[in-house]
Design a protein around this nucleic acid. Structure first.
Lengths: 220, 220
DNA sequence: GTCTATATAATGATAGAC
DNA sequence: GTCTATCATTATATAGAC
């Protein structure tokens, strides 16, 4: 459920070009692509606006470079991780070093919100990873077989990324100043609890839902 | 889980001012506040850019008017709805007339994404509604008592709105052209299924999560 | 590679005619 | 109430000096 956190922070490049790119990642993650200006990014990176264009050609191309740096790295990391029993390790690691991931997570948030081919690819990769985890869990006996694996995996990914996208609200709702380790700590238990002990005490809600969906599909 | 859909579409006002406001709601919902321009809104409404400002004073004030029209209405609707057993009706109604809700849902999506006081109030009201539904369900015996009602309600609201925010991805992941009734039909069953039959076959994931959270809280 | 200066376009908002 | 015309600002992007 928190598999998204399973990625390494990547940052050793100290060239000016890299500094501009990192400032852009922070800006796009903080306020989105449209609201971020080349001037602000230049100021944050300590260079002139002209130099930003000199290095990347255009604001759009700068975004593409940011996508390649963050999303493709995260996607590759997600796809290579097919060990389903790492919840504890991943969560522990994230809670230990949240700042290393904060900038990348903010960028991912922006990317899945606006229209972006890289954001699409990331979401889809995350769904495939979740499908693998589900299949592996069923095989190992730790998870129950679900009726529609693709739809279930898609739903779980939307939940997981929804928590990231709406993190500000989740934090506020729990009385926290910002979305961070405190919020993750508070929400993780209840989240896993819902996946362990069913919320509903019988099948009536499930049956009602299936009735409605069936009516809609058959033309009622 | 789909309580957000429980609101009536509100649209009879045919004054020019209302036409401008409706065009703005559509634009803000489609591309967000920053990326929507006064000129585009004016064109969509069939008026001049100057008239938009004449009626609302500024782009920010126009947004406030849109918030009042969509979010405050939806919020009031959510708060007055304390009948917890309406999943079937609400879902049926939505599936019958999705277009009536599409514009409002898109606007809500944008509002909870950017920083917006009205969006905050909407999220919070939705959490309170969900807490009521949980409490009522427990009292009626249809739902199980959870360990942390506020965090659980917050998590459920983030899931529900996450589905809305990431609707484009959810639809694409299921092979649909756009997020609509087909996608809702496909995802509703698996979603309710997860709330009815637990995903995990035992408590080991829950225990692992609680161990990590406990370690983090006590300073490990 | 990096800057300053500037071209060009688009933005929110105003003024005044009708 | 509605428009046209325009202002002031800000945006991306370019040109050329260093």
């Amino acid at each position: 459920m928190f598999s998204i956190l399973n990625m390494r922070s990547i940052d050793e490049d100290v060239t000016t070009r890299a500094r501009i790119r990192d400032a852009a990642i922070a800006a796009f993650g903080r306020r989105g692509f449209t609201a971020s200006t080349v001037r602000d990014i230049a100021t944050d990176a300590g260079v002139s606006p002209g130099l930003v264009i000199h290095h990347f050609g255009s604001k759009a191309a700068l975004r593409t470079a940011c996508d390649a740096h963050v999303l493709n790295t995260a996607r590759a990391s997600a796809e290579s991780s097919n060990d389903p029993d790492r919840l504890r390790d991943v969560l522990t690691e994230y809670l230990a070093q949240p700042d290393d991931y904060a900038r990348e997570l903010a960028y991912i948030r922006s990317s899945v919100i606006d229209e972006s081919a890289a954001g699409d690819a990331f979401f889809d990769a995350y769904v495939r990873l979740t499908e693998q985890i589900l299949a592996e869990g069923v095989r190992a006996g730790t998870m129950r077989q679900v009726s529609d694996p693709l739809a279930t995996a898609t739903w779980m990914v939307a939940n997981s990324l929804g928590l990231l996208v709406l993190g500000r609200h989740v934090a506020r709702s729990l009385g926290h100043e910002e979305f961070g380790t405190g919020t993750i700590n508070r929400i993780a238990g209840p989240a896993v609890e819902l996946y362990t002990h069913p919320l509903y005490t019988d099948d009536s809600f499930l049956q009602a839902t299936r009735d409605v969906v069936s009516d809609a599909t058959t033309g009622r």
